[in-house]
């Protein structure tokens, strides 16, 4: 009887333990990264899904993606008599402005007493569409009720500027004439219009330009150290895992080389015993990490990063296995 595969007689308990350990380590790294960078990753996700070139504050709107920014603070709370307001960037829609997909967190046109809140604020305060939130009206001083008409995607800030705010989300108000007429304000516009065209419009004074590319670069810069450490740890763990697996079969592999088994058959068996367990560990940790992302509503950026790192880990496992195999043939 002839066997199809060669057994390298690895210690099964040890190999299984190593697989579990490797999966657990990867899972810890993944969840650590997700927890440490979730806000920034969500921000990056929104920026990448948006399609405007820059945002700018002006004196008059463009008719698309315009928002009022009020100099007097407007805050919302979950109950009428609450002293704790939501830590959110608040903007108000402009009466005749349209809202397109160029800004990924844009809401549809809201009613005068309607608001849209971003997902993070809704989740942490258990708010749903149709719920009422409250705000002291800056003009008449009374407490107004606002109905949540929309939940926006996860977004922390309206935009990132040099004086970055540390808010947890965004609340968009429907147009309210009283605010426009009585409270000093500027207009915030998200646009793709070439900047030279903008400057040539009569009477257009623009301030505080924030290019989306710069915002992306800023967020990536803040995420980069986390990603680098995460990647290095993942690669290191992959190589160590492959090394330990290959150590476990090295004596048998050398014995089978000496016996004269076919090179190709031995090479396949080596990969089966070194690359495959690592591969399973990576896939298990990836699956559990994605599950974690799903249950904690982490951003798609996190999921993509986990996927990308898993691919790099698999590549490193493969290269490590080839290296250790070559080393055994030489030695």
């Amino acid at each position: 009887m002839k066997r199809k595969t060669i057994n390298l007689h690895t210690d099964r308990k040890m190999a299984l333990l190593l697989m579990v350990l490797f999966s657990a380590l990867m899972l810890i790294f993944n969840t650590g990264l997700a927890l440490a960078t979730n806000g920034s990753a969500a921000e990056l996700s929104i920026l990448l899904r948006s399609d405007y070139d820059y945002s700018v504050t002006t004196q008059k709107g463009f008719g698309t993606n315009d928002y009022y920014l009020f100099n007097a603070g407007i805050s919302f709370a979950s109950s009428r008599d609450s002293n704790m307001s939501f830590n959110a960037d608040v903007v108000m829609q402009v009466r005749d402005s349209g809202y397109s997909n160029e800004v990924a967190w844009n809401a549809d046109v809201l009613s005068c007493n309607g608001v849209a809140v971003s997902e993070g604020i809704a989740r942490s305060n258990k708010l749903h569409i149709g719920d009422i939130i409250y705000s002291k009206h800056n003009v008449d001083g009374t407490i107004h009720e606002y109905t949540i008409e929309q939940i926006l995607p996860e977004v922390l800030h309206v935009r990132l500027t040099s004086h970055r705010s540390f808010t947890n989300g965004v609340i968009v108000m429907g147009y309210d004439e009283l605010y426009e007429e009585n409270i000093s304000h500027s207009l915030l516009t998200f646009t793709r219009m070439p900047f030279n065209d903008l400057a040539s419009i009569d009477g257009m004074a623009v301030q505080n330009i924030a290019y989306r590319d710069d915002e992306v670069a800023f967020v990536v810069q803040s995420l980069f150290p986390y990603w680098t450490v995460f990647l290095l740890l993942s690669v290191l763990v992959s190589i160590i895992s492959c090394y330990i697996h290959s150590k476990g079969v090295s004596h048998n592999f050398r014995r089978l080389i000496t016996l004269g088994f076919e090179r190709e058959t031995l090479n396949k068996a080596f990969l089966k015993y070194t690359f495959l367990p690592g591969c399973i560990s990576v896939l298990i940790s990836l699956l559990l990490s994605e599950l974690f992302c799903f249950t904690t509503h982490s951003s798609t950026t996190e999921s993509l990063i986990f996927g990308a790192v898993a691919i790099i880990e698999l590549a490193m496992l493969w290269l490590s296995a080839l290296y250790f195999r070559g080393r055994l043939w030489r030695r």
Binding site: M1, K2, R3, I6, N7, H9, T10, D11, R12, M14, G248, V249, H251, N252, R254, R255, L256, L259, G260, F261
Partner: peptide
Amino acid sequence: EYSEMGSIQVRDIISESREAHTGKNLS
């Protein structure tokens, strides 16, 4: 170096020597 070879059995040692030589293993 059998002490370093995990759960290997006498059968494996003898059978694999035969298998590499003739292509057939042993029960």
